[in-house]
Design a protein around this nucleic acid. Sequence first.
DNA 1: CCACGATCCTGCTAGC
DNA 2: TGCTAGCAGGATCGTG
Length: 255
Amino acid sequence: MLPNSSEAELAHALGGLRVEAVDRRGKYVLLAFEQDRWLTIHRKMSGNILLREADAAPELHTHLEIGFDNRSVLRFVDARKFGRVNLFTSSAGLREFLSDRLGPDSLVDLDAAVLADRLRGRRGRIKPLLLDQAFVAGIGNLYADEALWAARIHPLRAAESLSKVEVRRLAQAIQQVLAAAIDRRGTSFSSSYRDADGLPGENQEFLSAYGRADRPCPRCGKPISRMLIGQRSSHFCAKCQPLRLRRQKLLKPRR
DNA sequence: CCACGATCCTGCTAGC
DNA sequence: TGCTAGCAGGATCGTG
């Protein structure tokens, strides 16, 4: 879980330093320490970042603890061990790491023009592209399904085939879906995301497509479909998100 | 550029 | 009630 440092290096590099800022790029949480030292945490599927009192009961599957002199402790807890913690000793190193991996941030850098520009010439399907963090950073499987549902775009649509109107709808849907999820403090399933206080969010109560296979589409009532796309389970409404455009009403043949 | 499969791990649950 | 197969919020790497 420490791809670019050892435990000893971590402790040595950060011990005694003040945390000056906490930030985010895509799905990476950034801790900015004094002396241009940085820690990134990626939760992957099952990781949680908790802030507890120093004497709070220990959590199962804690892999990293950072104690602070205000008697709080940050814990990175991850049953599946997919999460990753990286140490950087220069902002240049951090920038390189992030720019190698992340496209424009879906919440702050994305609008219809940016999305249209990046879609141009991409021959793959739209859904796997949305999950590619180098294409657009910050969208995960469930939010991709929700955004495509909101924009009424089938997940198998060829990326470059989206119309201008569809691109605008999609850009807006991505931001709206993410902003709403954040307002609801995240999406939590049985043993998944918890906030820094260990509390689940409420967005799971408001999902329209993800995880709703065979249940009615909130828009049209037709059962939500589920299929594997790029090895990821995908949920959509086959009626509201048609793969082929509805047959144009044919002009009456001139006679 | 794109599709696909394997891989890293463990916990939960649907179904028998 | 107990077991087990299958599935899960993600990213990366190799192959074709």
